[in-house]
Amino acid sequence: MTAPAPPTQLQTSFILREYLRPQMLPSTWCPGCGLGIILSSIAQAVHFRGLAKDQVAMVSGIGCTGRMSGYADFNTLHTTHGRAPAFATGLKLARPELTVITVMGDGDAMSIGGNHLVHAMRRNLGLVAVVVNNSVYGLTGGQLSPTTPVGGHTTTARAGSFERPMNLEALARAAGAAFFARATVNHSFGLTKMVERALSGPGFALVEVISNCHVLYGKMNETPEAAGMMMAMDANTVRSNPTLQRRARLPVRLTDAETPAVPAADARPLAGVQTDTRLRRGVIFERRGRVDYSGRYYAQSAPPGDDEAA
């Protein structure tokens, strides 16, 4: 007789009662917005890590994602635009025992707060940052954002964006983050696992979550429905771990029947030449060893006997 498998998800009523502020709900997010799925993933990851909610702080900036801290029943800070990593750094230095989760949107983290994000990664304190990437400035009316894909139509790029989207993976690697993972709201069980791993490791852990803005971005790009936009995520991303790619047929996310097949083995490109433009999802990199620098920020304890001598 084997032990029962640990639960992979929580009951909705349990999340509502334990980890949310039901009096603040329903949220102001549009119907079908993936932010609610991300919020429930964070709550489940905190639960499965066994963290008390008084020991967790959620820091958010401005934007649709910035509202998440109003709905979560942790210690929450709703801060200025783009400065969530700066506030989180200060909070972590003042209260090192807290688990600090920073939630930011793509405009918040990469446009106005890009500088703060880079330096938070450089300092490598034990923070967890969840960057919700929906390819567009959602709250302000669907303008072009740094992550809008080439050819994506927005309200300020009617003919399609011609700029290269920002690569958060390369930025995190260069700036020295300890952990980087990418998930989508369509692959939400993986999303919960990514946040769990981010919560468990030392150093700055960054999780990029590809979300949907079908109301502002999707309707200009032929995916006006939330479900259709989530379906497209399945074709637009690929598992980072090749040995796990075969498991992609499991029915835990919406799959389009038109999803292109994996290229045949003889079509394999030269080593080191990346021809697949799909974003990789999964744990992209993880640095081991002593990556958390938070100990350097506190004054060294005085050698014993100094107080009496003085």
């Binding site: 998800q9 709900l25 949220s27 079908g32 917005c33 609610g36 799925i37």
Partner: peptide, 8 residues
Amino acid sequence: ERHCPDFA
């Protein structure tokens, strides 16, 4: 239940 964004 897992994919309801509004806990509904």
